[in-house]
């Protein structure tokens, strides 16, 4: 388990062939408590992926610091695109992040069954639909039992039933193996269903427009009407969500 102190003094992307320089973050602070399920909401192109990349240690070109309390956490990152190895089977892709050996193979197989892909274990990723590839990527992220789970719009392009199943699986996994979760989505209903805290980001450079604690019970989270009511109370209901945006 890990608490994270995020302080980004400055992050910009330099001007490149046509695109002007962009300042994404300036003096941005966010503290994440251990075991928190933090959902980040924000418009497209705002800097959410950039933030996750910085936290994951993939982007070091910023001023500031990311502090983890205690030992460096085991990080799993479900990227915005699946990023599977096309030349390895589904099972090999999942087992890749575990120590080699039959134990890892078994754990990977069990996790694939959990995400509903048991029968595709020996297929190659390019023969899977995008939704199935996403589920493989999720299995890979879950199977390593991370302390910190970064998820970048992991449930898009899934039908409602699969998305709900995976949300349930995610909840179950976190109960089995507590983790701090940073979860990016455009869907505020999904945010309310999962989060213990919702942060809405806005503007260039990014600032925190809203920071809401979510204290809903299991039954309330299962009720769309209740979630909608919560969102309007919290000022997080999106008008564009009604017209099917994002």
């Amino acid at each position: 388990m890990s608490a994270i102190g995020i302080h980004i003094m400055g992050k910009q992307f330099p001007a490149r062939a046509g695109a002007p320089a962009r300042e994404i973050f300036r003096d941005f602070r966010l503290d994440v408590a251990a075991g928190e399920f933090l959902v980040l909401l924000g418009a497209s192109g705002l800097g959410k992926t950039t933030l996750l990349n910085i936290i994951a240690g993939l982007d070091a070109e910023y001023r500031g610091a990311i502090r983890f309390a205690g030992a460096p956490p085991r990080i799993a990152y479900a990227f915005q695109s699946p990023r599977l190895l096309p030349w390895r089977t589904v099972l090999e892709n999942v087992a890749l992040v575990l120590p080699s050996g039959t134990e890892g193979q078994e754990a990977a197989r069990a996790m694939l069954a959990d995400v509903g892909l048991a029968e595709l274990a020996d297929a190659y990723p390019e023969r899977l639909s995008l939704g199935q590839q996403r589920r493989v990527a999720l299995a890979r992220a879950f199977v390593m039992r991370p302390d910190l789970l970064l998820m970048d719009e992991p449930f898009v392009s899934l039908d409602t039933a699969s998305a709900r199943r995976l949300r349930d699986l995610l909840r179950r996994l976190i109960i089995q193996h507590p983790a701090t979760v940073l979860f990016v989505t455009h869907d505020s209903r999904e945010a309310a269903a999962l989060a213990s805290r919702i942060v809405r980001l806005e503007g260039t450079p990014v600032h925190i427009a809203r920071d809401v604690r979510v204290e809903l019970g299991v039954t309330e989270r299962g009720s769309p009407a209740r979630l909608q009511a919560f969102l309007s109370d919290a000022g997080l209901a999106e008008p564009e969500a009604l017209s099917g945006g994002a």
Partner: peptide, 11 residues
């Protein structure tokens, strides 16, 4: 993309 994946998962 794959290189970043490998780095995050400490391959």
């Amino acid at each position: 993309d794959l290189d970043e994946m490998a780095r995050v998962y400490r391959l």
